[in-house]
Amino acid sequence: MSTTTIDTHAVADELARLLPSSQPLVARPAEPGERPAPSATAVVATFVGQTSAELLVVAQDAVAEAMAGAGALTLAEALRPALEAAARTLGAGVLGAAEERPAGEAVTGGDVTVFALVGGGTVQAWFGIRSISQRASMPSAPLEAGSMRVLYDVELTLTTEIGRTRMPLRDVLGLTPGTVLELDRAAGSPADVMVNGRLVARGDVVVVDEDYAVRITEIVSETSAQ
């Protein structure tokens, strides 16, 4: 069985870049024996693809300020965008639902690579990645059309995106009712249809029985989506 080497530092860098911390974070390999407190909360999600891995984040203190201004947002929901960004560096695949576990249970064993996420000269958060063998996560050979039938009833979450914008955390925390956000897309442009954060199609936003809907106008190939 062939294996794929994961550039764990690149994955950690991408997660640190998107983590909603009050200060920029830089990932560095943890020193021997350097680990988060066992009682801390780890958010864990499994990515399944040609390269599969379990991703672990301990960042409750680092994102506390962002969560304080985000209403009922859970820790797993707050960390989801950073986990999705990290997962995209692993290639095509699906990131499963995130769950919370004690860090002493999640960040353990010699098979997990741990990074300290440093900001302001101190460790603000932790990231761990544990490689999953290809055989355990999916067939080593590409799935044939017939064998894909076993996955046909698996439900996926599709989202529609009409545009994006970027702003500093201080501006996000200052959002109030009536704030107008300018997006990076002109009015009338097609909306993006995403599956687990990956662009799969584009379409026009329409109304069906007083509900919004999307009429697909283009299927996006993997190469054109990159």
Rank of each mutant, 00 (worst) to 15 (best):
M1F: 05
M1V: 12
D7K: 05
T8I: 04
H9F: 10
H9T: 06
A10R: 15
V11Q: 00
P20C: 10
S21N: 09
S21F: 04
S22R: 10
P24T: 07
P29F: 07
A30M: 04
G33K: 03
R35F: 02
P36K: 00
S39A: 06
T41F: 01
V43Q: 01
V44W: 02
A45C: 12
T46I: 12
V48T: 15
T51Y: 03
T51P: 04
E54K: 00
L55K: 11
A59R: 12
A59T: 04
Q60E: 15
D61H: 10
V63L: 13
V63C: 14
A66K: 08
A66M: 12
M67W: 11
G69T: 10
A72T: 15
L73G: 07
E77G: 14
P81N: 10
L83A: 11
L83Y: 13
E84S: 14
A86K: 11
A86I: 09
A86W: 06
T89L: 04
L90C: 09
L90I: 02
G91A: 11
G91Q: 13
G93I: 08
G93M: 06
G93L: 06
G96Y: 04
G96S: 04
A97E: 00
E99N: 11
P102C: 01
A103C: 01
A103P: 00
G104P: 00
G104A: 00
E105L: 02
T108A: 06
G110D: 15
V112D: 00
T113E: 14
T113N: 07
A116P: 11
V118E: 10
G119P: 05
G119K: 08
G120N: 07
G121Q: 01
Q124M: 14
F127M: 15
G128Q: 05
G128H: 04
S131V: 14
S133I: 01
Q134D: 10
R135P: 01
S137Y: 06
S137F: 07
L143P: 06
R149V: 15
V150D: 09
L151M: 13
D153S: 10
E155L: 14
L156Q: 12
L158Q: 12
T159W: 09
I162E: 08
R164M: 13
R164D: 14
P168K: 11
G174S: 15
T179W: 08
E182N: 12
L183M: 13
D184G: 09
R185V: 13
A187W: 09
G188R: 02
S189T: 06
P190Y: 04
V193A: 01
M194Y: 02
V195K: 02
N196W: 01
R198A: 09
L199V: 03
L199Y: 04
G203N: 07
V206W: 03
V206L: 00
V208L: 02
D209T: 02
